[in-house]
């Protein structure tokens, strides 16, 4: 069952990428904008998508892999259902953002850039979310949590778990 769902995923990704590529001319300088579009549509950059982009631009697939691994902004593994982004911009850094990041790492049992085994959470650091007055800041999905403390991490996790329990049974394709 798992395998069949992953092949449909692959087909879906191929179609999504094909649609994205229609908006670009096959010029090398479009590589980064294409990868950005793929990531915002798919959530990450799967290896089959890199190959697809490479053949579109007529460059070796390794070159696309090189660019995708060079930039921090590109994800190579799917994000969790609830992507957690810990801000480590200047203000958040000064206000102890790294302590918040440590707490998330400890609570989720993953390193930054990682995804929990159940695919529920992924953890990333970002450089400035744009609301420095609320430092230190954490984004969970698109929701902003300001003036974070390590103890607030558990509260957020608890809230997500309760919400999930409330929703469980209704088929769970929540966004």
């Amino acid at each position: 069952m798992r395998q069949s769902s992953s092949t449909t995923d692959e087909k879906e990704i191929r179609e999504t990428v094909a649609i994205i590529l229609q908006n670009f001319s096959p010029l090398k300088e479009n590589l980064i904008p294409i990868l950005q579009s793929v990531q915002s549509a798919v959530g990450y950059i799967p290896q089959p998508a890199m190959k697809q982009v490479a053949s579109f631009l007529a460059v070796p697939a390794g070159e696309v892999f090189g660019v995708a691994t060079f930039y921090n902004q590109f994800r190579l593994i799917p994000p969790g259902k609830h992507p957690v982004k810990v801000c480590l911009g200047t203000a958040c850094h000064v206000k102890g953002g790294n302590i918040i990041l440590e707490e998330w790492k400890r609570r989720l049992g993953i390193d930054e850039g990682g995804v929990t085994q159940d695919r529920e959470f992924s953890l990333d650091r970002v450089a400035c979310v744009g609301c420095c007055a609320l430092a230190p800041v954490v984004l969970v999905e698109e929701e902003v949590f300001g003036t974070m403390s390590p103890s607030a991490v558990e509260g957020i996790l608890l809230r997500i778990r309760i919400e999930k329990e409330r929703r469980s049974g209704c088929g769970g394709n929540e966004e």
């Binding site: 460059v59 070796p60 390794g62 070159e63 892999f65 090189g66 691994t69 060079f70 930039y71």
Partner: peptide
């Protein structure tokens, strides 16, 4: 890449 036109080897990561 340039001499053999194969393009298998590349730099990756940073």
């Amino acid at each position: 890449k340039e001499e053999q036109k194969v393009g298998t080897l590349h730099f990756a990561y940073r």
